[in-house]
């Protein structure tokens, strides 16, 4: 508890200079990666229904991992959020339990060797997850683990503070502009549902499958659908 509080004070003091210019929250991911000494980090916002947004990512690999988790609907952040506890995969190439086979294949190809996700939550209130990735295998040490937990707590406060000013029924402007909620994907799902005469939920599944088979992100595929460069028609793509 004391260690936790000490590290929290340290993290807050490192974040503080950036809060004034409004970049504090976006710095959270960089701070998470720097403090824990991993290759990169991301914070994903999740709800139990549809919402899935990236609050921040440190690098292309972190953004790719977020896209993969959103495209596949599986991954450490989703598990950490659902289970309310850290999900640690120190050996992605040789996992003790093969949890996310599709995600692991793509992540390994992108050079990721270890993944760690920590729920962003307060009590029973679950907001999302902090994901750390590293280009070498191996577990986090105790201090790294404690730092990750502390940053997850700071992220919780930051997200709630951002939403606190929003009028009822809306997403705060800060979150709206700072996070990527993949709205284009939901527009594309609406279009695909008309193109194929299926429900929007199934259309989202089709978009995901299409993106995964073509090894593209679901945002890219959706942008093409919305701009009418591609149509998803007929049966599942071969």
């Amino acid at each position: 508890m004391t260690v936790h509080d000490d590290r929290m004070a340290l993290i807050l003091s490192r974040l503080a200079p950036h809060d004034a210019d409004g970049t504090g929250t976006l710095r959270l991911c960089e701070l998470a990666a720097e403090t824990t000494g991993v290759s990169g980090a991301s914070i994903i916002l999740l709800s139990d229904e549809l919402a899935h947004g990236s609050l921040c990512t440190t690098d292309g690999v972190a953004a790719y991992l977020d896209d993969l988790q959103f495209t596949l609907g599986q991954g450490p952040a989703i598990d950490a959020h659902a289970g309310g506890r850290p999900v640690l995969e120190p050996e992605l190439a040789a996992p003790a339990v093969a949890r996310w086979p599709a995600l692991a294949t793509s992540a390994l190809r992108a050079g990721v060797r270890a993944l760690f996700a920590f729920p962003v939550r307060i009590g029973a209130v679950k907001l999302g997850a902090l994901t750390l990735h590293r280009d070498s295998p191996g577990a986090l040490n105790d201090l790294q683990h404690a730092d990750a937990l502390a940053i997850a707590v700071v992220a919780t406060r930051a997200i709630l503070a951002m939403q606190a000013d929003a009028p009822p029924g809306s997403v705060s402007v800060e979150l709206e502009e700072g996070a990527n909620f993949h709205f284009v994907v939901h527009q594309a799902a609406g279009m695909v549902s008309i193109q194929l005469g299926i429900g929007v939920t199934e259309a989202l599944v089709r978009l995901r499958g299409h993106a995964f088979l073509l090894d593209r992100t679901i945002d890219d595929v959706s942008r093409d659908v919305v701009d009418r460069r591609i149509r998803l028609e007929g049966p599942e793509p071969a």
Binding site: L50, Q163, Q187
Partner: peptide
């Protein structure tokens, strides 16, 4: 926190439904 988070989830989910409907109408 629960109130804020519920409000955020609800706002996001209605936003998503609006985006879906826009895609369908489009």
């Amino acid at each position: 926190a629960a109130v804020l988070n519920a409000q955020l989830s609800e706002a996001l989910n209605s936003r998503i439904i609006i985006e879906q409907a826009k895609g369908m109408v489009s």
